[in-house]
Design a protein around this nucleic acid. Structure first.
Lengths: 153, 153
DNA sequence: TTTCATGTAACTTCATATGTTACGATTCGC
DNA sequence: GCGAATCGTAACATATGAAGTTACATGAAA
């Protein structure tokens, strides 16, 4: 199945934006993400409508984060993107007459619902601030690595 | 997103087979599932290769369950079908150079991995025998309902 | 030997995520 | 005001993958 990568994309974009003071244009973001400015506008539009980012037109325009990093969770982004569901598996018929199919649906639905609840809970616990911190750690580690390499050479 | 419904389909098929003594043909199963005999053969082929069902050609041939109902779990079926993953969301680039993207991937992967582990655990606890029992309960309830309706009329 | 069934390749169809083109609307600097 | 930069969005193109379909080979039983 073709997986929806918009959540990953907007996270990537938001963290890049968080590293800067000035707004970033769709064109800049599209280069970060390896995609197209129109795709960026289309996807970020969901976040704008959810109040997570704001956009300005004209020169010196672009996208900026409109909320506190520690107040934006992965769950918020998932909801904002209106992602239709987490799962690549499902059943064909939502309201079957066949009792056998009803048993099958009930078992699958219950199992998937439990996993979905876990996902939503966990995603509600992870904020953009957490990711930015994780990035800072990685960045420091790489900088140290480069430093070591320079000294060794 | 187009969801993979093969797990649902084979469960449906297996429960119908469990209700009978004789083998069922692809044609019969396809009518139960509202699909095509070739699709049934293609999908059930995964279960045959996993030893969960057996098939016989020729007259009086068809499909039969080759293991104990209480020994077949949803997880076994999921694995047998070689379903590529549970999730409809994911990230675009598996081995990014960008440190920001690495942070994003790490966070998403960890969250999804946790949910996947839960799913596999739960699916490993549910057997075909459990579903057959649930079906029996629903069947009895409906029979009672019909009985009541007859008496009332 | 005929009939019925599976096994499988090849192709079609359909849904949908993503990419692209085009153009209108808005804002800024001059 | 004018022109450049930028978003907003419609319309269309492309790619991927699940499921459906056709065709035919293989094997088993009456």
């Amino acid at each position: 199945m073709k997986r929806d990568s918009r959540l990953s994309s907007v996270l990537h974009a938001l963290l890049h934006m968080a590293e800067r003071d000035a707004p970033m244009t769709s064109e800049q973001l599209s280069r970060c993400l390896g995609t197209n400015p129109v795709v960026v506008r289309r996807t970020m539009g969901f976040l704008r409508r959810a109040g997570i980012v704001a956009s300005d037109r004209g020169q010196a325009g672009g996208w900026r984060i409109a909320a506190d990093l520690s107040a934006i969770t992965l769950r918020d982004l998932h909801v904002a993107l209106e992602e239709p569901g987490f799962f690549a598996i499902g059943h064909r018929n939502d309201t079957p007459d066949c009792l056998v199919e009803q048993s099958v649906n009930a078992a699958l639905d219950q199992t998937l619902a439990e996993a979905e609840a876990l996902l939503l809970r966990r995603m509600g616990e992870i904020t953009l601030a957490d990711l930015a911190k994780d990035f800072a750690t990685r960045f420091a580690a790489r900088r140290q690595q480069v430093e070591d390499w320079k000294n060794g050479a």
